[in-house]
Design a binder for these strands. Structure first.
Ligand code: ZN
Ligand code: ZN
Ligand code: ZN
Ligand code: ZN
Lengths: 134, 134
DNA sequence: ATCAATTGCGTTATGCTATAACGTGTGGCA
DNA sequence: TGCCACACGTTATAGCATAACGCAATTGAT
């Protein structure tokens, strides 16, 4: 599955996420796209589902919202392994992190339980560097 | 803050979670406790908030539900560090895991970003040993 | 004992998040 | 041509969470 040609709705949603300075909820996206003809939540959710499938965006479980993937070559659909997110509770900024050692550790953890991993969520809530400086 | 005396509502909610064989949503708990006088979601959410604060239960972000802490000495309020959950998508069973190395790795990751961690969520979705056997 | 502050409680109403169900249109292909 | 897969639009509904109000019980000074 290579660089997928996005539909109009999918492109609009992806653009909205790219131009946002933080994660957006589905309903916030809906409001941003009303001028482009969006009327109902499903138009957003259907696009989000596809974008998630293509690996172009991520869902932040702890805040029911979505961010564009920070991976530079996001046109190429390739799983970029486990992702950890640092989410600032002050400014809302999200940092996407990848770490081989962490991934390895998770594999070991799951292995101990003979658990077959499908998807891993790691979200760190706290305060970013900017918001910590006093 | 030591072994907290729970209120009636808090005890009822905690018992419901202890007797459940998997995570429960707030509304499921509400239904289970209607015979005990519960009528509204807030009665449940308020109890859940306190139980979370006491460290007696955990919230599973990826499924909007709650589980009793599996830590044996859950009467003593002491943070038991970062918790990772393995959630079976077939049978709903949840396994609570603790791993020093994992915790260390996350500390390093956050440190690189000069990020001050408040709370960490780790949830592994997949299939448990029982549900993998064919 | 009394007052004030805190905490829990019950109720009603509301808001936010997500999906079910139905029908339409379009493009690819046997 | 007929069929299928897929995206789309719309309405309705389900599921999750909190705001706001008032009351009651508790605590801890004064
Ligand atoms: Zn990414
Ligand atoms: Zn910040
Ligand atoms: Zn625990
Ligand atoms: Zn299972």
């Amino acid at each position: 599955m290579a660089a997928q040609q996005l539909t109009k709705n999918q492109s609009l949603v992806l653009d909205a996420l790219h131009h946002a300075d933080g994660p957006l909820s589905a309903y916030t996206i809906l409001d941003k796209l009303r001028d482009h003809g969006f009327r109902a939540p499903l138009q957003v959710y259907r696009a989000l589902d596809k974008l998630l499938e293509f690996g172009l965006i991520h869902r932040l479980e702890s805040m029911n919202s979505f961010v564009a993937c920070a991976h530079p070559d996001h046109q190429h659909h390739h799983d970029h392994g486990v992702t950890a997110f640092a989410i600032c509770e002050d400014c809302g900024q999200v940092t996407e992190m990848h770490d081989e050692a962490m991934e390895e550790r998770l594999t070991v953890l799951a292995g101990k339980q003979h658990f077959k991993t499908e998807k891993t969520t790691i979200e760190i809530r706290g305060h970013c560097q900017n918001c910590t400086a006093e």
